[in-house]
């Protein structure tokens, strides 16, 4: 085996020191932040304190951008945004470990009993997408339903060229899938069992890009020229059509709070719903009004 006997060695010691130093930096990072918070004078706003936002990883990047903009105006408030999943967000709000829980799906029956206040802060349109080589660019809601339940198996049945349809869906529980099922399928309708299951927008998109026979559904904000979003019942999915309600398939991004909330939390939610906040929302998702 390897032999490693020799005496003290400088590089090794140096490496160890470097390591310890790195750890020290981490430790000091916390102190510096604390100092920063203490030194800065309030810039004429009332709220102060810490707001912890936890939950959906889909909402997280948006919530962080909103938090950054909010903190520019309110230096006495610290907003931290943690991502762990929608359900964890609901739980965090319910148990009070976070002031705001975020969710990118509607609350489930059992969660509705928690007595949480739901605030819709943004909407995410869900586009039905096909490969760019596909001739089909319009489907009726009924065709979409039949394709995803496995009743229609071939593109030739809906006006395309012959080829078995590859159905790509999101994982069970996901907000995108939940909204899609609720709006597109009947109560007892089930997504076809042989569908490819992916757990992210990007993975669904890759599947559709690579396979000329594929169909999937993804967040509207992620649609670009690598895939083709089909019109459903003649309506093109877009910010405008989701906003006016003519395009039906969308999911809400929720901020969840419980009971009476503190001033900082209220100030943050107010900011998110304000014109300035909604402008940030509309860069990636769809504003609420």
């Amino acid at each position: 085996m390897k032999m490693l006997t020799f005496k003290k060695s400088r590089p090794a010691v140096l490496l160890t020191i470097a390591l310890v130093a790195m750890v020290a930096i981490v430790g000091c990072g916390g102190e510096k932040a604390a100092e920063k918070g203490g030194e800065k004078p309030a810039a004429g706003t009332a709220a102060s304190g810490t707001v912890k936002v936890a939950g959906s990883t889909s909402v997280q990047p948006l919530a962080e951008e909103l938090a950054d903009a909010f903190m520019d105006n309110n230096p006495d408030v610290t907003v931290t945004v943690q991502g762990g999943g929608s359900s964890a967000g609901v739980e965090s709000a319910n148990t009070g470990t976070a002031q705001i829980g975020t969710s990118s799906r509607e609350l489930k029956e059992e969660e509705k009993g928690y007595g949480l206040t739901e605030t819709v802060v943004a909407k995410d349109g869900i586009a039905v997408v096909v490969n760019t080589a596909n001739q089909v660019s319009e489907l009726t809601m009924d065709q979409v339903k039949k394709i995803f339940t496995g009743e229609i198996k071939d593109w030739s049945k809906v006006g395309g060229s012959k080829g078995p349809i590859t159905v790509v869906v999101r994982e069970e529980g996901s907000g995108t899938r939940g909204a899609f099922e609720e709006i597109v399928l009947d109560k007892d309708g089930k997504l076809v069992a042989s569908a490819i299951v992916q757990n992210s927008t990007g993975a669904v998109k890759t599947a559709v890009t690579k396979d000329s026979n594929a169909i999937g559904f993804i967040s509207l904000g992620s649609v670009d020229n690598t895939v083709k979003a089909v019109k459903v019942d003649g309506v093109e999915p877009s910010e405008a059509t989701v906003l006016d309600g003519s395009y039906k398939i969308s999911r809400p991004f929720l901020f969840l709070t419980k009971g009476k909330i503190n001033a900082a939390t209220k100030a943050f939610i107010d900011f998110v719903l304000s014109e300035e906040g909604q402008k940030i929302v509309s860069e990636q998702f769809i504003k609420i009004k």
Partner: peptide, 22 residues
Amino acid sequence: APVRTLTGNIAIEMGYAAGDHV
């Protein structure tokens, strides 16, 4: 044939699962 593995099952669904699903 496409398949799902045990590890995959956890990683895919953990983000959104609630209640008994978790």
